[in-house]
Amino acid sequence: METAANFFNMGGYAVFVWSSYGIAAVTLIGLFCHGLRFLQSSTAKLNAKRATRHRNPDSNNLEPDNEA
């Protein structure tokens, strides 16, 4: 228990040491989540774009018109 208290106390510099590690963790994890969200939104957008192309064949003019 004594050693755990010592550990968290960081020789009286707890505020500086732990806030350094805390800010680093928050920044790096936050940046990572931002990257994941960016990937997710881009994938969703690409899938939506592909879906509209398939649903809307006359926009690419390749399929023959099914006029009678």
């Binding site: 990257g35 960016f38 990937l39 881009s42 994938t43 957008k45």
Partner: peptide, 11 residues
């Protein structure tokens, strides 16, 4: 991860 996202947007 970020480059994958950028490639998606490129497509």
């Amino acid at each position: 991860i970020r480059i994958r996202g950028e490639i998606n947007f490129m497509k």
